[in-house]
């Protein structure tokens, strides 16, 4: 099973520049077509499953708008038993 992750984009900071979507290796980020921020931008959002929490989007985001979460690795105890 691939690692599971997710991103949360802060609409206060996001300017819909699309840089995150352009570098996402899983191609799971889009600019929300039907949502608009207070500043008038379509903000970035996850639009399908597949985020691995690699944080490449956060490395390029000029607004530090992205928080990245990843499922913690499971304890190996079960495998040993």
């Amino acid at each position: 099973m691939p690692v599971k992750g997710r991103i949360v984009v802060d609409d206060v900071f996001c300017k819909g520049c699309e840089l995150c979507a352009s570098v996402c290796p899983q191609k799971v980020i889009q600019m929300a077509p039907e949502r608009i921020t207070a500043k008038g931008y379509h903000p970035a959002e996850l639009f399908k499953d597949g985020c691995t929490g690699c944080a490449v989007c956060a490395v390029i985001c000029p607004e530090a708008a992205i928080t990245v979460y990843r499922e913690a690795p499971r304890a190996r105890v079960a495998a040993e038993a």
């Binding site: 992750g5 802060d10 206060v12 900071f13 300017k15 819909g16 520049c17 699309e18 840089l19 500043k39 931008y41 929490g53 944080a55 956060a58 490395v59 390029i60 985001c61 000029p62 607004e63 530090a64 708008a65 992205i66 928080t67 990245v68 979460y69 990843r70 499922e71 913690a72």
Partner: peptide
């Protein structure tokens, strides 16, 4: 069962920049 992999650095204020979208001044 989740960990934070990346979050906004503490040394930045919670102020929205005036930079144009995509400007790498922000990076």
């Amino acid at each position: 069962n989740e960990q934070v992999v990346y979050q906004r650095p503490r040394a930045l204020t919670e102020v929205n920049t005036h930079y144009c979208p995509g400007c790498t001044h922000g990076v």
